[in-house]
């Protein structure tokens, strides 16, 4: 052990700073590192670095002692959570008591029902299966379609899920609120409206509107919504950022 080093400075190798004191035999990360080679050693070296970074962050002024400032779990948080939980479960029970489900006629492969629809939360996906008119037919193949309409519809589902998945890898930075990033907010509104219009498209047989018009509107309305959102947020942005910056600079006046 290196006791001769400055003892007032907290150690950051897993030996000294733990809140629960390690017993004498627990090796510190430096000691463990000394016994290792290769990848394991690199890992411990990284742990040491991370620990040091953590230590520096803790010593910075914007860290708080949560144990002192925290809101007590019992009874405050617990009772609030119990109240919310019972209210929510009660709402489910109320719904089930007032709007009970029904059951169709038994399954019959000989009789196709006039309307076949999934549950409401799959309407958007069902709408995507009806995108046949968008499936490009290639002149190169003599007007043949590269894939069947139904394959195209299933592929559209995967494309939507993939597009949602890559959002965090495209949109970086610390902006959070919609006013701070009008473009991404309008992308979000586009998605929300598209899911609704696709749901309408999936029930187009029941919808009192020309089916071609419905199809066109399915893709037009989301763009309109997105443009409006963009315009509104863009014009709101200046005022919002002004307020936010004024607050910020009052707290931290520029040097």
């Amino acid at each position: 052990m290196t006791e001769d080093t400055d003892t007032t400075e907290a150690r950051a190798d897993g030996g000294g700073t733990g809140i629960v004191p390690p017993d004498d035999e627990t090796p510190t990360w430096s000691e463990r590192k000394a016994r290792k080679q290769g990848l394991a050693r690199t890992t411990y070296e990284y742990f040491e670095r991370a620990r040091r970074e953590d230590q520096q962050l803790r010593q910075e002024s914007d860290y708080v002692e949560r144990d002192v400032l925290g809101f007590p779990a019992w009874p405050h948080e617990t009772i609030r959570n119990l109240a919310l939980t019972s209210f929510f479960v009660g709402a489910i029970v109320f719904l089930s008591a007032t709007l009970p489900p029904h059951i169709d006629a038994p399954a019959n492969s000989g009789v196709t029902p006039p309307t076949i629809l999934p549950d409401w939360y799959l309407y958007w996906s069902f709408g995507l299966l009806k995108l046949g008119p968008l499936n490009p037919d290639l002149a190169l193949l003599g007007g043949q379609k590269l894939m069947a309409d139904r394959t195209f519809g299933v592929l559209a589902n995967l494309v939507v899920v993939g597009a949602i998945a890559i959002v965090p890898f495209l949109n970086k930075g610390s902006a959070r609120r919609p006013v701070e990033q009008p473009f991404w907010a309008s992308v979000g509104v586009f998605g929300v409206i598209l899911s609704i219009t696709l749901a309408v498209l999936s029930v187009k047989n029941l919808f009192p509107m020309d089916s071609h018009l419905t199809f066109d509107l399915t893709f037009l309305v989301p763009f309109v919504g997105a443009f409006i959102t963009y315009a509104v947020l863009k014009s709101m942005r200046e005022g919002y950022m002004f307020e936010l910056n004024r607050r910020y600079y009052r707290l931290r006046p520029p040097k």
């Binding site: 169709d104 038994p106 399954a107 029902p113 076949i116 299966l129 139904r150 394959t151 299933v154």
Partner: peptide, 21 residues
């Protein structure tokens, strides 16, 4: 429940699975 809705929703599911190249 294996009622009419279930049967025909199952039919759509089978079609979707079959459409995978």
């Amino acid at each position: 429940p294996w009622d009419q809705l279930a049967f025909w929703a199952g039919q759509i599911g089978v079609e979707m699975a079959l459409s995978i190249p």
